[in-house]
Write a protein that binds this DNA or RNA. Structure first.
Lengths: 201, 201
DNA sequence: CCAGATATGTAGTGTTCGCTACAGATGTGG
DNA sequence: CCACATCTGTAGCGAACACTACATATCTGG
């Protein structure tokens, strides 16, 4: 028994194109026609490879969070909580206004609200954002244990805060805010982390 | 010439119901069927009164921002920049988790991204958020002039920052974060404004 | 009570959506 | 070269969408 005709497109390349469409238009705003055109394939190929529209989104999210995870590892590798926050927020400002990608963050742009029948999409995005927050929290827990953060500080609250600012910056970026505006936000936001640092700066 | 049959529903009451549907499902996620059912009317009445779906959204946004404006006036009436930020952010935490409303903020939930043909919706929401930011900025400009904020502080950046945190909290609320979690974020966020206050607290 | 004007409920319209049946193309194992 | 398996393109499926035609009902002005 043979192995069948091989597929004529590269799945990861196609996924990158799909990711960009979801990123720009959101889950519900992206149509199969737009996706297939961007991916350079026809609907049957899409469904054979990814199951359905939601499966394609999840695959795109996997790819997005994988790429982002590499960067996040660098972020939490910073020596102090303050520098973690600074790397994170200034990096967010740069990345979310990088003309190579759609503005904002796929985990926000993808869909905060969805119609009946797609309630799992916002949940899926929220789960991925929460993973990011967890990674930050773990890093801040360590910072507190190391005496880098004040003994009175709340690492979980700090992580939630940095995560919230990141999300807010993503919305601003998608609404047209430029890199400079986001850098200003990052600059102010870091000061709240400084206030929780043992050396106060 | 007569004045015709009077409408049998109250426009503002119906608008409140429509606002809640948009708030919960977003612009694209909300269907005319859901809207008319919530409003207790039939499609022709909706179109006669509001023009089309986008007109209904704008009317709902007008009502939302009007109600919110009353509260914002109280916020900026606080005596110091720090207290303005505190009232704003703790109030956001309370309001966005108020069980009387859908979670989050209509200006965020309404739609960050939209499909082709509805690009004006995200723009409309962004414009309303910008108005809020302008109001904050004006207040912080005054605070700086009054010596309440440091001479080196940037009122526009501070306003952008508070606005960004508010938006981030809105996304968190819609993803299931409870009041306490948002209050923690608010509590941390205020410290950045404190750092820009002349008395440092 | 009548004529004009506006609102209402029923029952659709055309379009677009996500998705797929099907036939032909292209590969592998024997 | 043949049976089989998988992919590809065309063409279109049923459902849901925003929106509306139309007949009927309810008002005002005369």
């Amino acid at each position: 028994m043979g192995m069948g005709r091989p597929r004529e497109f590269d799945a990861e390349t196609a996924l990158d194109q799909a990711m960009e469409v979801f990123w720009r238009h959101g889950y519900e705003g992206a149509t199969i026609a737009q996706l297939t055109e961007a991916m350079g394939i026809n609907p049957p190929s899409l469904y054979a490879c990814f199951g359905n529209k939601e499966g394609l989104l999840k695959a795109a999210l996997d790819r997005y969070t994988k790429l982002r995870g590499v960067w996040m590892d660098e972020v939490v590798a910073a020596p102090t909580a303050r520098e973690v926050a600074e790397r994170m927020l200034t990096g967010i400002a740069d990345r979310q206004t990088d003309p190579a990608n759609p503005p904002g963050c796929l985990l926000v742009q993808g869909g905060i609200a969805c119609g009946t029948g797609s309630e799992s999409v916002p949940f899926e995005l929220a789960t991925r954002r929460a993973q990011n927050e967890d990674q930050l929290r773990d890093r801040f827990v360590r910072a507190k244990a190391e005496g880098d953060l004040k003994p009175t500080s709340d690492p979980a609250a700090l992580a939630r805060y940095v995560s919230a600012v990141s999300v807010g910056m993503g919305v601003m970026a998608s609404s047209g805010s430029d890199r400079e505006a986001l850098q200003q936000v990052a600059s102010v936001a870091v000061q709240a982390v400084e206030a929780q640092s043992a050396d106060g700066k």
